[in-house]
Design a protein around this nucleic acid. Structure first.
Lengths: 206, 206
DNA sequence: GAGTTCAGTTAACAACTGTTTGCCGGATGA
DNA sequence: TCATCCGGCAAACAGTTGTTAACTGAACTC
């Protein structure tokens, strides 16, 4: 790790980060396709023209936000899935981790859920690509478990997809929920995962 | 059905419908929160001020679009679920119906998927409410099936939620897919439903 | 220490936005 | 037939938008 950047590059990355954070903040009450360049620079306290030193577009800023938002996800669930444990424990742990992640990075989660099907193609595609990579990783982890013996690669991948979609839906549900609803949502998510896990266990009988 | 409206009301509903369709069309490449009132009236070929004769807001137009988009859904799946048949047949039929619905009303499907987590609160809530109603109906249908004997109402409802989320995800996947990918998507959707159905069948053992 | 690089500034551009006001003219109902 | 209703219009409002150009001055290179 050589973080010995010159003073100039350090400052540049600082304002770049400020632009990203300002954008993310503004996106809590609107969609990316309505986010204004001037709006963002105004929050940061920088001239509109300065924006172009960092991003070509608002869409470009959006793509950068995708990487920032989904980068941490990989480490997150990887850790959960790798600990070889009882299925029930893995489920409980997964839902806890998702809930914690939402509590820690609500804006990032909202951004992904919102722009996954949002109005900006480049961002949609970036999210799709990142979630596909994530799905591949989950599939890889699932494949090593003994429950997956005799499963085709395709079937493992479709199960991973089911998990990924469920994760995003659950995260988004946590996000919009009032604090007192969190337990109910966690409970539903756990039961749904349990049902899927049950189906997984009986897949070979077909 | 008394569709004997006066000439005036008929004309009004006609332009109202034109506004809705213009909005829906424009929303194929942007989000509701960036949709402009003038943009919509320009497409219809009507003065900007005329918009206020029909809607208070763009958000208001969005809410109207929600009803239009999700109204037909109820009849759709109801028909599928009510025909008491083999589980496998119901799955095949469901995926077919979803694919057909997407092919027939792509803009409506895109609108729902996009604005479900979109930047306009009122629309988000309208979609959530409508999908909740839909989930309740599905739960009701599921409850009458013999597979659900011994299930708590909550468990039936969580299964219905799983189905509804899966339906929306599948519809959205069809939407963004190239024609040659449709078969693969349909195949994955069917296998996922089969796995869920399998888990459903073994739920009592817990 | 002189010369270059470059993140950020200032200022101006035309184009666009939502909303209001007063008006028109055809449908409506007595 | 006449007065009322009311969907749509034209025009103007103050603000906002993205993008460009030429600039300043501190950090960099040699």
């Amino acid at each position: 790790m050589s973080n010995t950047l010159g003073v100039r590059q350090a400052q540049k990355q600082k304002t770049r980060q400020a632009l990203l954070e300002a954008g993310l903040g503004l996106l809590e009450e609107q969609s990316l396709s309505s986010l204004g360049l001037r709006e963002v620079t105004r929050v940061v306290g920088v001239a509109p023209a300065a924006f172009y030193r960092h991003f070509r577009d608002i869409a470009d800023l959006g793509v950068a936000l995708v990487e920032e938002s989904l980068g941490s996800l990989h480490v997150m669930i990887r850790a959960v899935l790798s600990e070889q444990a009882d299925a029930e424990e893995v489920i409980d742990r997964s839902v806890e981790v998702v809930a914690a992640h939402v509590r820690l990075h609500p804006a990032h989660v909202r951004f992904v859920a919102r722009e996954r099907h949002g109005g900006v193609r480049a961002v949609r595609e970036a999210i799709a690509a990142e979630l596909a990579r994530f799905g591949d990783e989950v599939a890889e982890a699932l494949a090593t478990q003994e429950v997956s013996d005799g499963w085709s690669a395709e079937d493992v991948r479709m199960l991973a997809g089911l998990y990924v979609d469920h994760l995003v839906m659950t995260a988004s549900a946590f996000l919009e929920a009032a604090p007192e609803e969190e337990r109910r949502i966690a409970d539903t998510a756990r039961r749904q995962l349990r049902l899927i896990s049950l189906g997984r266990g009986h897949w070979r009988d077909a």
